[in-house]
Each structure stands twice: as structure tokens, then as C-alpha cells.
């Protein structure tokens, strides 16, 4: 679990990646649920959420992600779903359960955290050891520097229609019952390093997310892709962005993610379109996917529609009826 915001921009020229949340939409939902600006820093967790207790005061927080929550107050336990805010009181304990679709969940607190930003962002860049809470993951016993909450939302809020589960969680059963997810790509920038046949193998193959995947990149297992015999399997390093799919000499694709390098020397066969990257980024090891090529124009139209859909979704967030309060 780490502190992330929507990313660190403007420092790629020093080799500093953008970092930031892998699933921006969920993070924005969590922030709006507690009355924050959409881009406020929050907690990103993978697979199983944390359990934490409030030593004193009151705390408004929200959870976005496909998981259940259990709160304990004065010895009484109540279960409820995520996609809502909740107000903790002194002595309350909140347990956040296993993510059932993908691996990422988000916890936003009203007004965010108080640590200072590094290069204009609160995002944790683990390999660089900076951002967030001293550049480190949060571990059991970590104290969170929470802002003095001043926001004025009177009621807890909820999202009536959460995003549908499109990808499996981490269990074998869950992985078995989902068909391969379709991830749309734009060919290039170095698709000319591959033959037509290899491009077909790439677009028609089924790939599996490897265990060696992290916030830097998702390594894929599946059809190996060979470079054209008249081209080198290497290029003079040039710029790379999250979503670029590098093919190293061993032929196994690596999809670059938020903490990925800023430049690289392997040809990039294709690049995942912006709106499909979060889905791929949060897929669990063993989950399957296939690629589909679209044009730049199609991708831009999809991006436009996606932004409108997100704005519409955030506008559906409303106060929670009293009857839904656990205590």
C-alpha cells in the first residue's frame, strides 16, 4: 500500500517517471466521495486492504474498489460494500477485505495528507525512494499524517452504480471464469521492426500476466515475438510512456506502467490506448488478455467519450440514506 496522486509531471527529462495511481478513475471516485478535489493524494492498496483503527477524533474516509468493508464499534461488527464514504469515531476499527476484480483499491480521507510534496507530487516512487511517506510502502504500524479535516460534507456519500467488474480477481476460480480481457492498442512506434506475421501473432495471441509484474511494468507470457531478421532487436534508446509495449531480445512483451522508465532501448511494437491502460495495469498474475488494434482517431474518440462518462459518473454521487449507515 502506498500514497499516490494523479502523478508527477514535468520531470521525465531527469528520468523521473510519473508514478501515480494505476486506476485513476477509482481514485477520483474515492476523492469525490469525501468531498476532495479529484486529484488529491490517497492510499492505493493491492489485493487485500488494510485494517486500521482510529485512536482519537473523527475521520471521514471513502473506499473505491471491488471489496467489502467491516467496521467494529463498541464490539459490534457491521459489513458493507465499498464505493461510499464512512465516518469513523474514536476506537472504531475498519477492515478492508479482498479485492474481487483486478488488484487495486483506493482509500481517500477528507482533505488528504499533510506531508510535503516532492517534485510537485505526493506520489510514492518506490524505486527512487521518494514521494508519499518517505518514498516507502506503508506497513503495519505506519502512522498516517492526516490533515485536520475541515471539509463540510454533512452526510456520508455513495456511488449508486459502481463500475462493473470487467476483469478477474486473484483467485484461481475467478481467473477461470473470465474470458481474456480485450486491451486496445495503437501500433508503433516501432511496429516496422516486426513482420506482418509477427504483428498478427501479437494481435491474435492470448497473453497471461506474469508474476514478475509490478508498478513499473506488466510482463506478459504467451506467443514470443521475434524482431525482423533485417532489423536489430535493439534501438538507440528513445522516449517511452506508460502503455508502450517493449519487446526485448527474448520476445516476451513488457507493458510499461506508471513507475516505468522514461526511455528504453527495445523496440515498441504497440502502445495501449490511455483508457484501457488502467484495466491492464491492475490485472492480477495469471489473468488473460488479448490485444486489438485501433486507429489514433478511434482512440481519441474513445478518450473523449471516456472523459464524459467519468464526469457523468462522478455527478451521480449522492448522500447516503440514513438507513444505510451501519450504526
Amino acid at each position: 500500500m502506498s500514497i499516490q496522486d494523479q502523478g508527477r509531471f514535468g520531470y521525465r527529462r531527469l528520468g523521473v517517471p510519473q508514478s501515480g495511481v494505476l486506476q485513476p478513475k477509482f481514485a477520483k471516485i474515492a476523492n469525490v466521495l469525501v468531498g476532495n478535489h479529484e486529484d488529491t493524494a490517497l492510499l492505493e492498496f493491492f489485493l487485500t486492504g488494510p485494517t486500521f483503527s482510529l485512536k482519537e477524533g473523527t475521520l471521514r474516509l471513502a473506499v473505491a474498489g471491488d471489496c467489502l468493508l467491516e467496521m467494529t464499534r463498541n464490539g459490534k461488527r457491521r459489513m458493507f460494500r465499498a464505493w461510499r464514504s464512512i465516518t469513523m469515531q474514536t476506537g472504531d476499527t475498519l477492515q478492508i477485505g479482498q479485492v474481487q476484480s483486478g488488484k487495486a483499491g483506493y482509500i481517500a480521507v477528507t482533505d488528504g495528507f499533510t506531508m510535503t510534496s516532492v517534485m510537485d507530487s505526493h506520489s510514492t516512487y518506490l524505486r527512487g525512494g521518494f514521494g508519499g511517506l518517505g518514498g516507502k510502502l506503508l506497513i503495519s504500524g505506519s502512522n498516517l499524517p492526516i490533515a485536520n479535516q475541515t471539509a463540510t460534507l454533512e452526510r456520508n456519500m455513495y456511488l449508486p452504480s459502481p463500475p462493473p467488474a470487467e476483469i478477474p480477481g486473484s483467485s484461481r476460480e475467478s481467473i477461470a471464469c473470465f474470458p481474456p480481457a480485450t486491451i486496445r492498442v495503437i501500433k508503433g512506434p516501432q511496429d516496422d521492426y516486426f513482420t506482418k506475421q509477427t504483428l498478427n501473432d501479437f494481435l491474435q495471441g492470448v497473453y497471461t500476466i506474469s508474476k514478475e509484474s509490478d508498478r513499473m511494468g506488466s510482463r506478459l507470457e504467451g506467443p514470443l515475438l521475434t524482431h525482423r531478421s533485417d532489423k536489430s532487436p535493439e534501438i538507440v534508446s528513445d522516449g517511452i510512456v506508460p502503455g508502450a509495449i517493449q519487446i526485448p531480445g527474448n520476445g516476451a512483451p513488457i507493458v510499461m506502467l506508471a513507475d516505468g522508465p522514461t526511455v528504453g532501448g527495445y523496440p515498441k511494437i504497440a502502445t495501449v490506448i490511455s483508457i484501457d491502460l488502467p484495466k491492464l495495469a491492475v490485472m492480477t498474475p495469471g489473468s488473460r488478455l488479448c490485444f486489438d488494434a485501433v486507429t489514433v482517431d478511434e482512440a481519441e474518440n474513445l478518450l473523449r467519450a471516456d472523459r464524459a462518462d467519468l464526469a457523468a459518473l462522478l455527478a451521480t454521487i449522492v448522500p447516503l440514506p440514513d438507513i444505510a449507515e451501519p450504526f
Binding site: R13, E234, S237, P248, G249, P261, T262, V263, G264, G265
Partner: peptide, 26 residues
Amino acid sequence: MIGFLPGFPYMGDLDHALYMPRRSAP
């Protein structure tokens, strides 16, 4: 240039006698 990782300096040029490809498995 600086890139790949924060502060990673790409420098050149090596003596020709040291030219080597990347490792096939990173």
C-alpha cells in the same frame, strides 16, 4: 541524455573494441 531512471546518464562513445549487445534476457 538523462533517462530510463532518475539521474541515469547515457554516455558515449565507447572504444569500438568494447561494443557489446544487451543481454537477451534483462
